[in-house]
């Protein structure tokens, strides 16, 4: 059976959920061969095997942490040459997209980014993508080389599918160019204890209407009652009320949760670009004319400082 290379996104051996989703998609195209790089890579094998990875190619070279992007490109290139896959799947993050694009150019293949679905087709994998702030849906494929496709989080279910997950050492010899951009220091992000924004099943976001950093406690309380991640509009981020890592939209994160709750957010096109594909959308806004209401499944016209705390209380009561 044909092999499909899956590039593993992990933090010190802890596999991130989008990679498990990729394994589900990869199994539609062939047998998943995972490639895990960097510190802790070998520790990913068990989980990957449980989700369908037949083999796990591993390299823990220090270069992956010391230099930007290119060492990963060279390792993936070595994996592609060793495996001769029918496709390479990568989870869409800013860095992984860069890795995917450079890999594609090197191996003479086309690249598609930010797919929301991947299916087998007569002439190779077909990727579904969203365009123009998700107002269009396109289907595309790669017409030359080994298709390299990056896939957005929440595009497929995580499905257990036991496979060997056999660990093999991937040997990579780095070029001089791989050492071009030095990572002088790295400060890991402190965890908020809440789910990762792009992976969360529920996202609760606040905008300019939240009117102050301290008021974000109201949004956080609602998020916590639902076990949700917290998002923010750019207006709220630019005002310094919430960190940029939580921004939803064109220049922030793109999210596609089961439920998105927007409070005090008008629904500008650039914000919609990052949340329009959410399954269920709910908004609280005191302006009945706010464009966000064009998107909602349920909307409340009202002051978020009345509605949101009442909602949080009611959820707590119902959950007991």
């Amino acid at each position: 059976m044909a092999d499909v290379v899956v590039y593993v996104d992990h933090v010190d051996g802890a596999v991130r959920k989008p990679t498990l989703e990729l394994l589900t998609l990869a199994r539609r195209l062939g047998e998943p061969v995972a490639v895990a790089l960097g510190a802790g890579a070998a520790g990913t094998a068990r989980v990957l095997g449980e989700h369908g990875a037949v083999r796990v190619l591993v390299s823990e070279a220090a270069e992956f942490g010391e230099f930007l992007v290119v060492p990963k490109v060279e390792a993936l290139q070595a994996a592609v040459e060793a495996v001769s896959p029918v496709a390479v799947l990568v989870a869409s993050s800013a860095e992984a997209k860069e890795v995917a694009a450079r890999l594609a150019l090197r191996i003479g293949s086309g690249v598609l980014t930010d797919a929301v679905d991947v299916e087998a087709g007569a002439e190779g994998p077909v990727a579904t993508q969203s365009a123009f702030a998700a107002s269009f849906t396109t289907k595309s494929r790669v017409s030359r080389g080994v298709p390299v496709i990056t896939v957005k989080p929440n595009s497929a279910p995580v499905e257990p599918s036991p496979a060997a997950g056999a660990v093999e050492e991937l040997s990579v010899s780095f070029s001089e160019g791989a050492r071009g951009t030095k990572v002088v220091s790295r400060t890991p992000r402190e965890s908020s204890g809440r789910p990762e924004l792009t992976e969360a099943a529920i996202v609760v976001s606040g905008g300019r209407g939240v009117n102050g950093a301290e008021n974000f406690a109201v949004i956080e309380a609602l998020a916590d009652s639902l076990g949700a991640a917290v998002g923010a509009s750019r207006a709220a981020v630019d005002a310094g009320w919430y960190p940029h890592t939580n921004q939803v939209g064109q220049t922030g994160k793109s999210v596609s949760p089961q439920l998105y709750i927007a409070s005090g957010i008008s629904g500008a096109i650039q914000h919609r670009a990052g949340m329009q594909t959410s399954k269920t959308i709910v908004a609280v806004n005191k302006d009945a004319e706010a464009p966000i209401f064009d998107l909602v499944d349920y909307g409340v016209v009202g002051d978020l400082f009345d509605v949101v705390p009442q909602l949080t209380e009611e959820i707590k009561t119902r959950k007991g």
Binding site: G108, S109, S140, R141, V300, V301, V307, L311, E314
Partner: peptide, 26 residues
């Protein structure tokens, strides 16, 4: 090296329910 096979406008989201908060909105 890539090919767009089709592009379709996303169907407009079906209009949802919008209520005015009269004290029971939450």
């Amino acid at each position: 090296w890539t090919l767009v096979e089709s592009a379709a406008e996303r169907p407009a989201r079906t209009a949802g329910t919008v209520v005015k908060d009269e004290g029971e909105g939450g």
